[in-house]
Computed example of a mutant assay.
Amino acid sequence: MRPRAAVPYLTVGLPPLVLAAVGVTHPMHLTASTAEYWRNLHIGILAVFPLLGFAPWLILRGRGAVLSWLVGTLGFLYAAFYTALDVLAGIGAGGLRLDDMGRATGTVFGLGRDLGLVGSVALVLAATIAGVVAIASTGRPAIPGALLVVVGSVLFLRDHIYFPVGVLGQLFLAVGWVALLLAARSATRAPGSTPVVQDA
């Protein structure tokens, strides 16, 4: 595979792999002893979380303006609202706990949870639409990838990146998105097929 042809696979596979690796070290609870790492961890992955919303659009690009705009909008909603969760419950709560303001963490956790739920649901919808359309246009080769991204996005909604379930969800997303790209690429190479996914 040419280096340029590998770009889409890295684009959809690398962010969830990074989040899975970070999730293995994510503290299960915010305490005085974990507060500094909790805060710094969320600062470190602040720019990684939004990248998850790019994968559904990349899978569906070239399959019609309506679908592209729909999953693009859902991806944007995910990125905006889930970033709010990361900032509030991650960076903010960690900073407050570190400064001995533990009582205030309940407020930012609650706000972050509510906003993050909007983003997580948007990602589940985007992943489901991308999976269904991929199966409809590519056929059975797309089924494993579609199942993985839907289950992975649901696990992300439920457990974020916490080990082990959240980490497993990120691994499902990484493998699923790459599998959908491979299925689409194989379909474009089949005799008489029309291209649906282009290499970046």
Rank of each mutant, 00 (worst) to 15 (best):
V167Q: 00
S120A: 15
A93T: 01
I91N: 09
V196W: 04
R158N: 09
M1Q: 09
A80P: 01
R63P: 03
T107Y: 09
L88V: 04
A130R: 10
T188H: 12
T34P: 01
I135S: 06
P144K: 08
P8H: 00
P50H: 05
T83D: 12
I129L: 15
P50E: 01
A136K: 15
L111F: 14
G145W: 10
P164W: 05
V154K: 04
P27E: 02
D86W: 09
A142E: 08
L168I: 14
V124Y: 06
P27Q: 08
V7A: 10
G176F: 04
V121H: 03
S68F: 03
Q198E: 15
H29L: 13
V167H: 00
D199F: 14
I45Y: 00
S153I: 06
A47S: 11
V18C: 01
T11A: 15
A32V: 05
H160T: 09
Y162S: 07
G102A: 15
G106T: 06
G44V: 00
F81P: 07
V197M: 11
G64H: 07
D159L: 01
P3K: 02
A32G: 14
M101L: 15
A136M: 14
D100W: 02
L77T: 14
V175N: 05
W69M: 11
A5N: 14
P164I: 01
A190N: 06
T73F: 08
T25D: 00
V196R: 15
H29D: 12
I161G: 03
V165T: 12
R140G: 01
L111W: 11
L181V: 02
A179S: 14
F54T: 11
R61H: 12
A146K: 08
L41E: 11
V151N: 05
P16F: 03
I91P: 07
A200V: 06
G112Y: 01
T105E: 13
R103W: 08
F156C: 04
G62V: 06
G90K: 11
V108T: 09
G166M: 07
L171E: 00
L88T: 09
L180H: 08
S120T: 08
T105Y: 01
L17E: 00
A200W: 12
R113Q: 13
A146G: 13
T11D: 03
I129N: 05
